[in-house]
Design a protein around this nucleic acid. Sequence first.
RNA 1: GGCCCGUUCGUCUAGGGGUUAGGACACGUCCCUUUCACGGAUGAAACACGGGUUCGAUUCCCGUACGGGCUACCA
Length: 505
Amino acid sequence: MIKRVRVRFAPSPTGGLHMGGVRTALFNYLFAKKHGGDFILRIEDTDQTRFVEGAEEYIINALKWCGIAPNEGVGFGDGPHKPYRQSERKELGIYKTYADKLIGSGHAYYAFDTSQELDEMRKRMEAAKVVAPQYNAITRQNMRNSLTLSEDEVKKLLENGTPYVVRLKVPRNEEIRFQDIIRGWVTVNSSQVDDKVLLKSDGMPTYHLAHIVDDIEMQISHAVRGEEWLPSAPAHILIYRYLGLENEMPLLAHLPLILNPDGNGKISKREARFPVFPLSWKDPREETPYIGYKESGYYPEAFVNILALLGWNPGTNEELFSVEELGKIFDFDRVHKSGAKFDPEKAKWFNQQYLRKKSDAELAEAFKPVLKEKGIVRDDKFIEEFCKLLKEKVQFTHEFWEQGKYVFEMPAHYDEKVITKKWNETSKDLYTKLLTRLENLSNWDAIILHDDFALAQTEIGKLDMQLVRVLITGVAGGPQLFDLLALLGKEESLTRLRTALSKLS
RNA sequence: GGCCCGUUCGUCUAGGGGUUAGGACACGUCCCUUUCACGGAUGAAACACGGGUUCGAUUCCCGUACGGGCUACCA
């Protein structure tokens, strides 16, 4: 029997969703698309101490912006397995049922140790030169739990309402072998796995129990998550096994991490010199908000394209893909094992590629707010023409202004380098003659201007086109000069030329 | 420290027992353009190291080095 593909993205609402998380969501989404399956959003809010206001909403909005919306789950209409928020599922007693089952079969036990007692145990272990103190098959023998306490004592403690956790009883020395879709077979000895807490003293499940219960109940076919989960996967295998669900458990896929471009480690939101969040994120606990890809001028399709190629590739030389295309060709067999350093420079290039695919009208529409903000009024046709001229020069919409503001404003000063080099005592006379010629020109379009300039050179002397450009715009570079003159129009162009001539005397 | 995972140009990567080790970003040069950019061409640039296995290893195996992850009543 082949299971229907059902994958989930299951973040914790502990902050803004960063690009690594989005990439995990994306790969889940693409895999679901590829196999015509379901993509589910589950909110894993089992840690009440780390809950952050607005995080859940942010996650939902970010997925929407990226165009990788789940078809089931929190914020996306729920579905047959609702609720999809673990805190709500806990109220239903779902997790306790499974925990009780494990206790019943002797694979889990109650532990009454206080955090102080746990600290003391760790200190003792460290003093005894144990490098990694663990609550495990050895140390649990000296702790206060239902394995060391008598049945009566345990009963009494429970009746008295003594706080307890439920721990997984991990065997002392047993090979645990499991297959990962991306990494192949992984073998770990159970001596390396601690007796993981399954149910916390506040009654909430930990991730380890909760995700397993939910993946089973929600009929998840593939558990796709970051590499940071690989070390705890053996414990998860044990839980499935002790629950008698090993044959029903989802296939595992551990994704490589996205690494910091310079130096090492996972991308850090604090130190990064590039956006790490898709949308800007204001953490209620912090002063300054983080600016997002959206606010930095990235198109969602570019952002998604960048992410898709971090740790995966199509096996061809093509690099530009829409989400739809990716959903047809993506699969785990071409996902890497090793982490990928993120390159902000290449990210910009991707955005440029998408910007250039936009029509002049679309670009103009996006640029209008900038003009409006500056109090500049121009008709649509003018703005479109402007965008057409400058689109080859920009990577982001906001650069239209930086690159071409001289179209909308009279030059305040003239590029010094060019003036120093090219403006001499004969210039004023020469360009005044040019001005006179242009005043008499009846047609003002790029081709006519081009021809007339050529002709002018034979009649009034050699013109320096870059100098002309500087007289008109103030800056040394820009789009085709004749196109630019045509865009400015005769009156504006000549006014600028006159102004320059008088200022430069 | 221990455990797990990894390692092809600076970066993202293709490839995979016999290749001039391919592409993209960034960088250099040239062409196009009466400027800049775009585009085109081109250059520099990589199989971490040491042992095996093999006629032959960048490719397979083992070590080492390096990188990363994990090592909570966090996910």
